[in-house]
Design a protein around this nucleic acid. Structure first.
Lengths: 341, 341
DNA sequence: AGACAATGGCCAAGATCGATGACATCATGA
DNA sequence: TCATGATGTCATCGATCTTGGCCATTGTCT
């Protein structure tokens, strides 16, 4: 394991000269740079990142904190493209990635801030956080710049966020159903605390209101983004409210649960009931009928978040909210409602 | 950012005493340990991992090297559970995870060894490597212990590997079709260089041989683990060989492409043609008909690989090959063949 | 034109980052 | 007196940073 002293001995230059030459500083002549570089190559020199980061606090490590990944994430597969997006941006900008996956059940888990501080993390990207999460407090007190994905904490808008316009997306999804003559539209939401859940709930309400449709609280259920719960909720819902002709689910996975429940109830999708999902996970286009849903790119989310944190580190700037595009994917789970109101 | 000197000044003990107390060494009295720990808490002390790792070479960093993830991986979603498996084992054993994703198209990518050496990585887990990969050479020359996932380089059995028994699994898959009276069974493989492809090809041949079925080289195609290519290959195959009644695909994604092609050819699965896949990705159980396939746990693969590398670091031991279980999932894409041979 | 200061390119020496490890030291009790 | 336990001293890991020295070139002034 060659170190800088070895190549210093070999070339006769000082430690400093070697270091500077290898880092391509401009107060070393090209001639000696070449000598030093050649020696380094010959000795198979690789800098020790610990020593470097210890000395120069300019270490370029950015943390990706993934909070409480549910069992569902194996099926939804949103985190993987997100990770790829982050990784690509980081690699392009010479940042190191420190990955920290927090199992919500693990009480002994180190705090986010401890993780970042002990390895001198310069910035962090947080994903999967909830508005009532304990981490929010830690964040505010920490001096580490961070970017949140999909979280936009109401009231405190002094944060960097990458998200889509969930309100509008949910509005469009609901409106899509209304446009197909549906009047009794159920809404199965993921929760109450996740920002995306709050936003989608708002979009649903807006769409109803704008089209003069009454908001029936009985039509709104929570299924914790779980396929199984959505299945159960849907069954109960349609037994009690056979007048329903459409369901908007705040996630594709829940939509799958809903479709399965409808199938078991011998209600045909889309002939009897129309379904719209959210996320456009790979599964959405493969099931039959193919699920109409809101597409968003998790790769882009990760990528943009990494770019944002990188630019934040280069120059301090105002807090920023990046809104990525979404798109309604019209597939085969929505049909025109022929039932009379 | 409190450092050890701050708590040394605060408590009056020496730097060493503080360090030892915080690391719970046994030559510090409990009384002073308590004093020092309290002070540390009060100062919100967090050790600097760079300094620690620089000084004590006992840094517990294990790298997970993901090589050339294809675009397919977003759909197959095998890498994410694998990562979770690795992460869980690492967290349990107090290892740090350094993630290195190599984009095969990126020529400028640092070498695996450089990545590991510069951050003092103690061991590595490699996934997605091919037998003709350049990394193989790097591996042999490196002193860093490593575990390969799904790779078992023929001839050089001096490696640590975590895998399933792909030969037997493919054998069972093929035999499953034979048991359903299929005699003309196509095999769509992923490639020629991936170990899993080689093994599955062997399993297919074995099953035919054992049941006295001739091996028709025309029935065997390569589709690079790609859904689109499998689609194209299947179309060509069945136009040329209408006598085929079954297809064994070396991956689920290819099986999906095959099923789509059969659909376009107006051949019903499983009535006209039976299909068996491999991997049991989430999609497999959602498509219609649900895909009969070989289940394996990628979470377990990652988990066991991490355990193995950890035990390797604790005590040097002989090279080990861990074979994980697999299971044939009988679903709805296979039916009894009624056509006469 | 010659002298002298000022500038700037190139490199060296030594301090330094924050922790740990080897060894010395200093009380004790046996 | 000699282990033994509890702390302190100092060097050390491998790099970067600060400071400053040397030499050659340029500009300015007499």
């Amino acid at each position: 394991m060659a170190k800088i002293d070895d190549i210093m001995k070999m070339t006769g230059f000082s430690r400093t000269a070697v270091s500077k030459a290898l880092n391509d500083k401009d107060d070393i002549s090209e001639a000696t740079k070449k000598i030093i570089r050649d020696a380094a190559r010959e000795l198979n020199y690789i800098p020790n990142i610990n020593a470097r980061n210890l000395r120069s606090k300019n270490n370029n490590v950015i943390a990706l904190i993934i909070s409480s990944p549910s069992a569902e994430s194996e099926k939804t597969n949103t985190l993987y493209p997100l990770l790829m997006g982050v990784n690509k941006a980081m690699a392009a900008q010479q940042y190191e990635l420190a990955l920290y996956i927090i199992d919500s059940k693990d009480q002994a888990a180190k705090s986010y801030v401890a993780f970042c501080r002990e390895r001198n993390v310069k910035g962090a990207i947080l994903v999967g956080i909830k508005t009532d999460d304990d981490y929010i407090k830690q964040l505010k007190n920490s001096e580490i710049p961070y970017v949140l994905i999909d979280v936009d904490i109401r009231g405190t808008d002094h944060m960097n966020v990458v998200k889509i316009d969930d309100v509008t997306a949910a509005f469009e999804a609901t409106e899509h159903l209304i446009d197909h003559n549906h009047k009794n539209i159920a809404f199965i939401n993921g929760g109450k605390t996740a920002t995306v859940a709050i936003d989608r709930w708002e979009g649903y309400q807006k769409a109803l209101a704008e089209h003069g449709l009454p908001l029936q609280h009985d039509y709104v259920k929570i299924a914790d983004f779980s396929e199984e719960k959505a299945y159960a909720v849907t069954k109960a819902l349609f037994k009690q409210h056979p007048e329903l002709t459409a369901v908007f689910c705040a996630s594709d996975l829940m939509a799958l649960g809903t479709m399965k429940a409808l199938d078991d109830l011998e209600l045909d999708v889309p002939r009897d009931v129309s379904v719209v999902g959210f996320d456009d996970i790979p599964l959405a286009s493969y099931v039959k009928p193919a699920l109409t849903t809101i597409n968003q790119s998790f790769f882009e989310k990760g990528n943009k978040a990494a770019d944002l944190i990188a630019s934040l580190l280069k120059e301090s700037q105002d807090k920023k909210i990046i809104t990525l595009p979404h798109k309604l994917m019209r597939r085969n789970s929505v049909a025109h409602n022929k039932r009379s109101a």
